[in-house]
C-alpha cells in the first residue's frame, strides 16, 4: 500500500492557494509563473506547521465495483516548502486495520518509507520507487498525495482568466512519467490548484484530479472533497476528509517506528473542537 495522506495535504495546500489568490487579485496579473506554482505548492501541501485529518476513499472501477479505504493522517513540516513527515493509520478495510505507514519526505534525496504489517509485526522498509503508482489501490498516485517536485517540470502560464491561472507543466525527464504534460487551474485568489488534467502523447486527456469542495479550517482554505478520474478505464476515486485540524503541536517522536507498532492514540483521537 502506498500513502494517501500526502495527497490530502497537497490538496489542502491547493485550497489555500485559492484563497490567497483572492486576497491578492489586484496584483495577481503581475505574478510570474514560478511564483504562482510555488504558492500553489505551498497551499496544496504545506499549510500550518502540522495537521491531522481523517480520510476515506471510495474507489470505483470501470465496472462499477467499489472498494473503501479509511485512514487517519498526521503530517508535520520539517521546513516550510521543504521536507515533511507523514504518518498514516488505516481503519478500513478490515484486513488492513492497524496497518500504518510512515514517510519522511525529502526534497534533495529519496524519501524514507516504512510500512507496518500488524499480522506479521513486521516493519517493512519500502523503496522510494516510482511515485506515479496507485496509492492504496486507489486512482490517486503517491505523488498526488506527497507532491511533485517543482523542479521536475517546466512551467508555462498559458492563460489567465478572471479567476484562474492555467499553467502547463512539461516534464524535464519525460521518460520518468506516463504523461506528456499536464494542465493545472490555480485559483487566483487562494492559489489552490483546483483542477489538474494529464495528457498523453496524442494530446488526449486521460486523467484528471478535481477539488470538489473547499472549506475554511483553522483559517486555512482546505480541500475536503476530491475526485480522481481515469478516463481510459472510466474508473474513479472519491476522497473525503473530515476532522481536520492544523497546528496541533505534533512532536517529532510521533513519526517513528514506535508509532508504527503502537499507534499514537493521543494524536489519532478526533479533536473536540
Amino acid at each position: 500500500m502506498k500513502p494517501l495522506p500526502l495527497l490530502i495535504t497537497a490538496f489542502r495546500g491547493l485550497t489555500f492557494l485559492l484563497l490567497a489568490g483572492l486576497a491578492l487579485q489586484g496584483k495577481a496579473q503581475e505574478l510570474d509563473v514560478n511564483t504562482i506554482v510555488t504558492r500553489a505548492n505551498h497551499v496544496a501541501f504545506y499549510q500550518g506547521e502540522d495537521g491531522r485529518a481523517e480520510t476515506r476513499m471510495k474507489i470505483v472501477d470501470g465496472n462499477g465495483r467499489e472498494q473503501l479505504r479509511q485512514f487517519t493522517i498526521l503530517r508535520k513540516n520539517v521546513e516550510d516548502n521543504g521536507d515533511q513527515m507523514f504518518y498514516v493509520f488505516f481503519q478500513r478495510p478490515s484486513d488492513v486495520r492497524r496497518t500504518a505507514f510512515l514517510v519522511k519526505k525529502h526534497l534533495d534525496q529519496d524519501d524514507d518509507r516504512w510500512l507496518y504489517l500488524p499480522s506479521l509485526d513486521l516493519v517493512k522498509r519500502i523503496s522510494a520507487g516510482d511515485k506515479r503508482t496507485s496509492f492504496v489501490g486507489s486512482d490517486f498516485y503517491y505523488e498526488d498525495v506527497s507532491g511533485r517536485g517543482l523542479q521536475e517540470d517546466r512551467h508555462e502560464l498559458v492563460a489567465t482568466t478572471d479567476t484562474h491561472y492555467k499553467v502547463k507543466n512539461t516534464p524535464l525527464n519525460p521518460d520518468a512519467v506516463e504523461f506528456e504534460y499536464y494542465l493545472v487551474w490555480i485559483n487566483k485568489d487562494t492559489f489552490m490548484p483546483e483542477k489538474t488534467e494529464y495528457y498523453d502523447a496524442q494530446g488526449k486527456m486521460y486523467r484528471s484530479i478535481e477539488s470538489l469542495q473547499v472549506e475554511d479550517i483553522d483559517g486555512f482554505p482546505t480541500t475536503t472533497r476530491m475526485k480522481v478520474s481515469d478516463h481510459r478505464t472510466a474508473g474513479y476515486t472519491l476522497s473525503e476528509m473530515r476532522f481536520i485540524k492544523y497546528n496541533i503541536g505534533l512532536p517529532d517522536e510521533v513519526f517513528s517506528e514506535r508509532s508504527l507498532r503502537t499507534p499514537p492514540q493521543q494524536w489519532l483521537e478526533r479533536p473536540s473542537r
Partner: peptide
C-alpha cells in the same frame, strides 16, 4: 466563507466540476 468558496468554484472556476457533481449526484458521497 465556505459558501463563498463553493459558489466561486461552481459558477466560474471549474465548470467541469459542476458537470461531474450533477452527473453523479450527492449520493455518491
Amino acid at each position: 466563507n465556505i459558501r463563498r468558496y463553493s459558489k466561486r468554484r461552481c459558477c466560474a472556476l471549474v465548470p467541469l466540476t459542476c458537470l461531474i457533481i450533477s452527473a453523479h449526484g450527492q449520493d455518491q458521497w
